[in-house]
Amino acid sequence: MAKAVSVRGLTKAFGPRTVLDGIDLEVEPGEFVALLGRSGCGKSTLLRILAGLDREVQGRAEVPGTVSIAFQQPRLLPWRKVWKNIALGLHRPDGRAVALKALEEVRLTDHADAWPLTLSGGEAQRVSLARALVREPDVLLLDEPFGALDALTRLAMHHLVEDLWIRHKPAVLLVTHDVDEALLLADRILVLDEGRIVATHHVDLPRPRRRASVVEQRTRVLADLGVDVEEAA
């Protein structure tokens, strides 16, 4: 079966600064992969390249299927109603019906005719997710989509994303710097540092995962990030 994402020897430099340094990465269809790293490690750059937003690279980055994306900021068009934000670009005559169905999945049907600026941060992010998923992508790119949300909303969003992923089964590439988030959601965690993948962790825990169940693996992932977790703390 073809890979959902296939990257080989991918290198990207901004001037003298090498941001990605020979990345090799393959993602299976339907696989949930988390890219974990500190800010500036190149994870967002990798996502932008996979989204086709940056083509000036060395090496190969192939995404054969359709791609969709949700960013840290929802990036909704404030001058288009919520449903229109989802339907635009789909080029379907039944756009509104499709949009309403997508809104139902993120439990926002009531807000279909609202202006995006009237939504809360969590609601806007759910619209952004619905907008990404309604395109039935083979690959869903998530660029720290929970980063700007409060802790409680973030927890609810984790469950929502997992639900949606199980239902639609796109391959997911989630960029995050939150170890717990990666452990709760991903099949595989790639730790990025200075433009290289420095560690890979397979997470074989049963779903839905609870915080307690990931604690043991957490310490090992944090060690790869250079964070020493003392038992006393």
């Binding site: 994306i69 635009l88 670009g89 080029h91 990404a132 395109r135």
Partner: peptide
């Protein structure tokens, strides 16, 4: 906002749609 234009590109808007919307 270049962020909105980027999002529209990935989400499959045509050039005309990017200008109009």
């Amino acid at each position: 906002d270049p962020g909105l234009v980027e999002a529209a590109k990935v989400l499959g808007y045509s050039r005309f749609e990017r200008i109009v919307h």
